[in-house]
Design a protein around this nucleic acid. Sequence first.
DNA 1: TCGGCTCCTG
DNA 2: CAGGAGCCGA
Length: 792
Amino acid sequence: MDSPTNLFSDSAPQIHAFVPTLSSTDLPGVHPQPSAGRPPPSFRPPGFPLIHHLLQPGGASRRIGGQPNTNLSTHRHLNNRGLEEEGGKRDGQLEEGMGGGEGEVLEGEETLLEVKKRHSDAALAVEWSQDVLKLKRMKLESRQRNGEADGETDEGGRKREGGREGGREGKRREREELKEQLEEAKERLQALQEKVWRAFGEKHMAEEENKRRHRNGNRRATDGGDGDIGMMEEEDITEGMYDEEDIDGGEVEKESFSLLSASPFNNFHIHKRREERPKERDGRMERGRGGLQLEGVMEGAGLWLDCGGLIGGDWDGGVEDEGEEGGQKFAQALKLELGSAVARVIDRVLRLYTETTDSSPSSPPAAISFLPSDMGNDGGRERGVWTGLLTRGRGEQKTRGKEEKTGGQEGEREKQLQQMSNGSAGPPGQSHRTEPSDLTMPLAVQRSPDIRKSHPLLGPPLSAHLNPSHPSLSLHQPSLPRPPPLSHPPLLPPASQTKDASSFHPSSSSSSSSSSSFPAPPPPPPPPPLPLPLLHYSMQQLFSRTLHHPQLPHLAPSRKDYLNADPFLEFSSHPSFPPLPLLGHLDPSLARHAHGGRERERGMRGDGGMRGGGMDGGELYLTAGGTQEGLSPCHLKKAKLMFFYTRYPSSNTLKTYFPDVKFNRCVTSQMIKWFSNFREFFYIQMERFARQAVREALTRDGAPRLGRENQLRVGRDTELYRILNMHYNKSNVYQVPERFIEVSEVALREFYSAIWTGRDSDPCWKKGIYKIICKLDCPVPDAFRLPGCPVG
DNA sequence: TCGGCTCCTG
DNA sequence: CAGGAGCCGA
């Protein structure tokens, strides 16, 4: 978890995919030129298939050459492209041909496979390519017939039977036609092949041909054969092919630069790519040019595909025939154009929005959120941050020293705060609390830098990826020295500590001061489970507002006002976090589940509800006097944030910081129970990571040294930090105070020490640790004294 | 006796 | 996260 800038910088390439410079014509895979020499027979302007794709609601990813339904869809496309001219007479060959001539195919395929196994050198590539072209053609023919059959199931078996009869009659003639077409296609494709060959070099093409040939063999076996090619033992081979394709089909497809199969927009591949992206990024430049360009295409596509069923949907999967390539290219071009256009619109809207919020007088300066987290000095600075959020200028008074010196003033201030909270007008933020659904890491990784800059209050991201060139980095990565911890001397790791640190320390610290000087970005932390590109997020935002609350747009102008009115809302209603996790995929019905049943049952509304009406579930708990009989989810979130400062709050402390709660025995117990649960989680994690560290220390070198303890740290780039942040600061809109990190480190080391020395055999071994941690509480920032929910 | 805490369970 | 049991100290 590190500076937010880093994560956004990391996502920059993907965002670039939307900039106009990457228009569809610039994309190699979309460029019309490569298809110039392609056999045109089956190409049609894919108007209908395109729309068909766009209208695919499910967005289910389809694997190439995979399941029958995949083929069905593809066949329909072929059907729709006017291949009907060959008519029902071809239907008859669907089964007939498969039974008749497939043997040759398989024999040839066996031969090819054998050859492929024996010879991998480039010299065979050309020869193979001819075979591939042939097979491609066969496959296409087969698909056409299959499409005839599959695409018209509505008409029942009658037409099929009729077609079968017609097929018998014209069987001979059609074979001749097919052969002619095959020859024609061969020639054209061969010419094209030579072009490609020249362009990309023999070796590369040889490999690609090898792969493609293999894959084509698979598909042909899968799809059934042509009329002039026999079929035998198909099942066995096909099964094998399926297996093989399951295993490495995606890789083959990804690596191949196949002009015959320009279908890089494959969900499977995209997702696979995303998983590999971190480690691939470095090596990508070293790949063949074709591969590199294809990467660009795929990256761009990935963003759209991530929009789930919105538009990417079903259209990319498995379309691989040259006959469809034109349509595919058209679809890709349109998709990219749409993508860039929508992205521009979204960017504009977001820019407008963020300008209004940034220019609002009560908005904190951008730098404030990235103040060096030197809460270690007592949290005073952090308090300043919070106070700055609440009321401009008040934060300046909040240095620790001043507070101690001006206790009387603070008392007055507290009175004022209490008045604010109990005033008849009601706390401004009370009615605007929000419950943003959080998707911390994934978003953070891929959110736009612009967004991030405009919303500096976002918590630190997890990733340690840096883009030092990013303009905001200098602002937000101050080089202030890390403050000394309060009570416990920090067991700062030695400078030499690196990779062999414990797993909760996956990389060098980039937090605060020590990290910014690291020359090279540390190894990336565990990748977020669901990276969310900006577009996805933006679309989610737009859809969550428009779909859930279509009336919202007209409320947009007033947003600035109520933002100013409620400082908490600076966090809570911030659009920087999607209201819906990726799960939703822009589908409101799905997104509804993402908020969790309990909160909804309690009257907690989704993000949109709060924004639209300024209502919040918390209001349901309000009594006439402005306090609540019960505890709302907002209170829970606030309590979690308070846990960053105090692990063992007293009842009085709780009453002080929850002025809007009407405390009774039950409520107090519940809140105390909350903190008890917080502690439990905290200690469980500490113990878990400490044990892991001990294990690793033992396995690392047979003679473990206690010096390893020095590597026990909880930097913002560690897994432990990520877990803690996710638990207590799920929406990640609050900057975890450095103080808490230090406390966590102390706890971790205490656990480690206890486990290391075997003290954990004592049933009460944790009590001593509890006692230590108990003393490390620090004052909660005054901002928490305000009623309401700080971050939603 | 009561409040608070930990531990366990669901 | 809540509920309950058990423990401890005021």
